[in-house]
Design a protein around this nucleic acid. Structure first.
Lengths: 347, 347
DNA sequence: TTGTAAGCGTTATCAG
DNA sequence: CTGATAACGCTTACAA
């Protein structure tokens, strides 16, 4: 803070005790005469002393009481819900959270990770951009604690907490099939991305299970933002033989698809992956994982590691749920029911 | 990170140079023979050395390269958009951002501020919970740099960047009046909150300017979450003499109001304050401030202060815009136009 | 071009 | 119960 903050020594002088006594009082160590303690506390109060946690964690060489979180984009509600849950859990442990957005850029992500490690965070939560993460091994070997969130990393030597994307995609497709849809299109992000890949796989599996052919014209991958999703949707709906349903594989894509449908004033059944604000009002059916639970589970794993857990890295899958809403626009009460999957955990 | 990370001394020994030479290389100070530098870099590489920024900023007694941001709730898209913008700007300065949610709890907020100050953040961005902030003066006097975001704080001795809430509310009401609405209801948060108070004031002003009477039954303040907004909306719509329009004074309230309208299958014109995801698809007209601009402006002020700016605290108002969309549900292309206000700045 | 010594604000150790 | 004194890992003088 730049200013002239008083130090323990200042307090010690003001209270006419040694610096160590001040330290004892500040850290509530006990073994200080009530009278002395009072004098020290007075000095602390009148000087406005506040312990310097930087110096503290330098000396204790442990517990900077800071956790780092690197995500794709904090402005994406999916990530900010995770961040919020993480923040809350981290705070229960008396720590603070540094958040950083990588824009899914591997280069930037690595920079951010290094910056956080230089700051000696106690642990790191990472939504890995799709790229090799073997470089992280050097850090984990040196004692850095890392947990991956939402997707595992290639060669990433750490636990990962992810959703059951395959199962979720199957829930979505099965639902559409149940509604009698047969020409189901899927719009997904870059298949290099773990989540997109799995959701596409789940789509294919479910279609096969339903004995439905997959028209490759209806499989649109590599769609990264809402605007592209909008364009792709318009393109799909203007096909000679358009799809009768859409599986939109993440929240940005769902939003773009809705805009696209609106643009061509044409509607098909939609099931989206990820919750979207106001989806209840829109009567939008989604498959959605519990983002806060994802965050909390990740923090718990991280603290387990920090606490000395030495097990081999685990992949923990959290089951998403299908939230069925009436797929119609208009005003009126909506029914809503949920279909679940089991939560699984594998080594 | 707990482990046995190598220090400069380890590197120095490995490269057979002094610790100071390592420091020079690490900080790219120059004045090192290329040959020596190479040896040091080799050692750094093979040891996996990483500078300890905690120790560094302890010694330099400046620039922990960390900024703190305390907001109400990181999971609220309005705040997460601000956080994202702040994060981005902060990173341009080579710093990282610690985010913390206060839940609008003055007690918790103060705890978080203290934790951040103990960590010697270079500056603090604060969305103040409505409560006296004179306690902050002691900190600012000691050199802490603070900027308030979204609302000023009572007795808060610092710059504040806020939206022109009065003007925004007037834009909203004027728009409804222009549509021929006369019985306009307002749903707002607790009037203790600066933004709610100003928006209510703007509502009253605009109604008076339009020569419309304000039915106190249609003024509903103290509505803090979406669920209460939903209930209030249902209540309003079921009145013997219901309103023909709603001004919903923040994003959570807007969402709740839409749910309420849906629940009673009854629709009135709505203008909301704050942008809401998918409002374009819903054809929802809103008054909305540019959250990223708010964040960026705040960071700029903060760095100006950190840089030594000594002017008396300023209140900077950013003008929101009215985004008009066709207030109808259904599918079809939407028109959209914007109405602006001037940005103002006052001492 | 390189090295030595001191010190940032704490806590740990070991005496009184 | 209280206090010197030495670290923690780094940077800032100031020498060599």
């Amino acid at each position: 803070m730049g200013g002239a903050r008083p130090t323990m020594l200042d307090v010690a002088r003001a209270a006419d005790v040694s610096i160590k006594t001040v330290s004892r009082v500040v850290n509530a160590e006990g073994g200080v005469a009530p009278q002395t303690r009072a004098r020290v506390n007075d000095a602390i109060g009148s000087l406005g002393y506040r312990r310097n946690d930087l110096a503290r964690s330098l000396r204790t060489r442990t517990a900077s009481a800071t956790i780092g979180l690197v995500i794709g984009d904090l402005a994406n509600p999916f990530y900010s819900r995770i961040a919020r849950a993480v923040e809350q859990r981290v705070r229960c442990e008396g720590s603070l959270l540094i958040t950083a957005s990588s824009d899914e850029d591997p280069e930037l992500e690595r920079e951010l990770v290094h910056a956080l490690l230089s700051r000696r965070v106690d642990g790191l939560l990472l939504v890995p951009a799709e790229a090799d993460h073997s470089w992280l091994q050097r850090e984990t070997r040196r004692g850095a604690h890392v947990v991956f969130v939402d997707r595992p990393a290639r060669n990433g030597p750490a636990d990962a907490i992810v959703f059951d994307n395959v199962g979720g995609a199957r829930l979505a497709v099965d639902h559409l099939v149940g509604l009698g849809r047969r020409r189901i299109a899927v719009i997904a992000d870059n298949p290099e991305l773990f989540t997109a890949r799995e959701r596409l796989a789940g789509f294919a599996t479910a279609m096969a299970a339903a004995n439905l052919p997959v028209d490759q014209d209806l499989v649109r991958a590599g769609v990264h933002d809402a605007e592209s999703a909008r364009e792709v949707t318009i393109d799909l709906l203007r096909m000679a033989h358009p799809p009768d349903a859409l599986f939109t594989a993440n929240n940005r894509i769902t939003i773009g698809a809705l805009r696209g449908m609106q643009a061509v004033a044409r509607s098909v059944s939609v099931v989206g992956f990820d919750e979207v604000e106001l989806s209840d009002v829109l009567g939008l059916t989604v498959v959605s994982g519990d983002a806060p639970e994802l965050g909390r589970t990740a923090v718990d794993r991280l603290y387990a590691r920090i606490g000395g857990d030495q097990q081999p890295p685990r992949l923990i899958r959290i089951a998403p749920r299908l939230v069925v809403r009436e797929p119609l626009w208009g005003i009126g009460a909506r029914k809503q029911r949920e279909v679940g999957l089991e939560r699984t955990s594998a080594p």
